[in-house]
Design a protein around this nucleic acid. Sequence first.
DNA 1: ACCTGAACACCGTTCAAGT
DNA 2: ACCTGAACACCGTTCAAGT
Lengths: 207, 207
Amino acid sequence: MDDSTGSRAKATAGGRRYHHGDLRRALLETAEAMLREDPSWQFTLREVARRAGVSHTAPYNHFEDKAALLAELALMGFDRLREACLAAMPGPGAELRAEYLAVARAYVSFGVENPGLYRLMFSQEAGAAVHENPRSRAAFGVMLEMLERGQREGLLRKRRVRSQAAACWAEVHGITMLTMDGLFRRETVGRKALDEALETLLEGLEP
Amino acid sequence: MDDSTGSRAKATAGGRRYHHGDLRRALLETAEAMLREDPSWQFTLREVARRAGVSHTAPYNHFEDKAALLAELALMGFDRLREACLAAMPGPGAELRAEYLAVARAYVSFGVENPGLYRLMFSQEAGAAVHENPRSRAAFGVMLEMLERGQREGLLRKRRVRSQAAACWAEVHGITMLTMDGLFRRETVGRKALDEALETLLEGLEP
DNA sequence: ACCTGAACACCGTTCAAGT
DNA sequence: ACCTGAACACCGTTCAAGT
């Protein structure tokens, strides 16, 4: 009944806003939803199109190929990761130590709560185009800037700030990935245990 | 000419030792070689079979499915990673600091030199079966044991050794992955810069 | 016990054709 | 400008059949 009323009817009224000119966005949202529902889902373009209610060739009007859709999705993930880290920053009066812990926790939480998306962001399928894009590095810029300020104010051990930033990024990225992979033992994955790991690095940053 | 001499001839003489009873090993070796030649290679079972000189269904006599071959390959990778870390350990008289740096460097080098294999080891395709297998955790056991000894001898900051081990694993894993992904800036990926990142964590381990 | 070839249900991508 | 359906060259996996 519903379908026979004509597939060309504008479904813009209230509900789904597919097929009305923003298929590009609809495809990205659909793909992300599927990734969230099943983080282990094997990404297929045809299934995204199916669920978005279009033919399996329609996506090619908006993305060069499957890799391009994946890349855009990954970049959106980096944007959101950055937002999550910024949102976690305490006010300007806070101590560096508290700031570091807040941002690091927010970073790890983002990954653990969005495992499918986070994995895609760092996957090979996303491709070099993603990792060369400033939007991906910007996600970690939040912490880099924090460390640079700490260095300026003499709150950190003297060392090249880029190396310290690399150590921080590697630490939170590593914790996120190994947690997602289930490679940490049960005693290690709790909030308290992860805090301890973050603090171990923190103590290497402090003078 | 070559092929018409009979495909059933024993090719065991000197060269390739395929089809003579160890196809399982041959498939694993072939797959690993292809991964080494092109780290971005999209793993297909049919191509492995083709290159190994058998029909595309032959692998099913030795592996339940594609995932099983991937899993075994990943476990072999963890074995070799462990060996690489053990081989890098200096003699029993060495200082903890030197030991830590040697093992950490060996770990990162293994990943950077075997990007395809390393990525597979931590990929989702390898599957939970891999990450639940003791062989995967054993790779990092080398460093865990080192830290436990350091704790016993009072050479480390007092803290739960498991958290320190988690921090170490996350650090080297993160450095390896981000280097492979090209997410570190040019100044960051040099040997000296990576040492600095490792030392940042080291200083958080030491009292 | 091990291997093959045909067969099935999928993919990603291209292209002529429609509006 | 955007979408569709048929078509092509692939996959992973199953299964009857061969030795």
